[in-house]
Design a protein around this nucleic acid. Structure first.
Lengths: 248, 248
DNA sequence: GCAAGACTTTGACGCAGATCAAGATTTGGA
DNA sequence: TCCAAATCTTGATCTGCGTCAAAGTCTTGC
């Protein structure tokens, strides 16, 4: 299965998670080349909608850089975010022809896309791709279920702490350490987007963020830059085990 | 790929969804026979725990008959149901060694199980199985995300109506039509289990069920037997489009 | 550098659903 | 058949978060 060429990563693909995670180092050379043929990049600006719920979806792909959200909207306008897409996350469903959710770029976004039909065709012939996608989808399912606990049973304060701990842990690209080796990052979401993710109003989000700051759980510089002095404390506030449940 | 034997269903397997949905009519005869070798049935009584969160999980499988729930519990005892397993639903994750949730039988339950190691091994050699599991997992992910909207944004009354409409639509085995051709079924969940699914208290569930009855949206015979005079009305109460969103 | 719009904070008040409590109904075992 | 436990209903009261309102603070383009 393995050969030298499949292990090497060509420069233009060094940022492409699908190729890294699903394909590279596992498939035959000619499969890699076929995948290369149907691959292309798309860029979106912050605020742009990548795809509307119900639209025909003619590609699948994964996030290379930036952040996007998946949201559902009820007829009366209530909206719930159902997924946060960070670099390396996959978008799209083989076998489904239209999008089930709105996908919106919340920061500038680069996606690595594959035309859907040839990708599906290739999946049929390349078992590792389906297996890798299954693995990724099971991870997403776990994350969705973890989030159900947050939405159904946690208080507003716990919800905020849960969101901050997910962001602090999941997106290596925005995470830094400051001079004292504390976690520090820019929030990639507005208060309103946080509210949509957490099933709260933006006013409640704002109040609870202020409360966490006042209590020393987080530090804020401006509206968006967050520093976590003690990640264990934050996890406690989130109602998680100190060792972090599924996020560990 | 196809041959006569793979299309025929042996009697002892006529109820096994994995075989129907993932394997039958798609694989070679010898794969079918190997699958048969590692297959076994397990029965559980109502109330029994199938597996505890964190336990080593040495099988995967699917529900043949009965209903089970997936729940998460916080240290302080708050619990959230994160999945409802109806006949044909799959349990277990190839590649994961321990269970992430408690699985509890809420009615008498029959499961069709496969020993995990040989099943995984077989999955590697039989692309259709991974592809079928991917399809099923994507469906579960959609259901989980639909439920996030219910948990995050719907009122108590809408939540109850949403749960009833899911049960009314998804479990063909408990669904009947009465003499006037109206949907009618026994609720497979206690008020407490409904509360755990909906992120409510059991008192609120009881009150809202009573309210829906008083308003003629549902009819009750005893505590558990429900009749839906007008499914469109119920969907309206659930806040869904009359044509049902992802449940359509 | 300033005006307009987007985003955020804070306050006052109301309400949906939680909590606490008591009692009714159903189930099951001796 | 009867008692005990489980399940469900209903009422009274409390509270966390939503709603409405106003003002503060960033950002952007001119």
């Amino acid at each position: 299965m393995l050969n030298e060429k499949s292990l090497s990563v060509s420069p233009d693909c060094s940022e492409c998670p699908i190729r890294h995670r699903a394909v590279c180092a596992r498939c035959e050379t000619d499969e890699l080349e076929r995948l290369e043929e149907i691959k292309y990049y798309r860029k979106f600006e912050a605020g742009q909608t990548v795809i509307w719920s119900g639209d025909r979806m003619e590609f699948v792909g994964s996030v290379v850089s930036g952040i996007a959200t998946l949201t559902q909207t009820m007829e009366d306008g209530r909206t719930q975010m159902v997924g946060l897409l960070l670099p390396s996350d996959f978008v799209g469903r083989p076998g489904r022809s239209s999008a089930a959710y709105d996908v919106v770029a919340t920061t500038d976004l680069v996606m690595c896309c594959f035309r859907k039909a040839p990708f599906e065709e290739m999946m049929l012939r390349t078992p590792h791709i389906a297996q890798r996608l299954l693995e990724m989808t099971l991870d997403e399912l776990d994350a969705a279920r973890e989030w159900m606990l947050v939405l159904g049973r946690k208080t507003a304060r716990e919800k905020i702490a849960s969101l901050l701990s997910i962001i602090a842990r999941r997106d290596a690209s925005i995470n830094q350490r400051d001079v004292e080796d504390r976690l520090t990052f820019d929030l990639p979401l507005t208060r309103e987007a946080m509210a949509d993710y957490l099933g709260l109003t933006l006013e409640t989000v704002s109040r609870q963020v202020s409360a966490l700051r006042k209590d020393g759980v987080i530090e804020l510089e401006g509206k968006r830059h967050v520093t976590i002095p003690d990640i264990g404390r934050l996890l406690e506030e989130a109602g998680d085990d100190a060792d972090g449940g599924v996020f560990a």
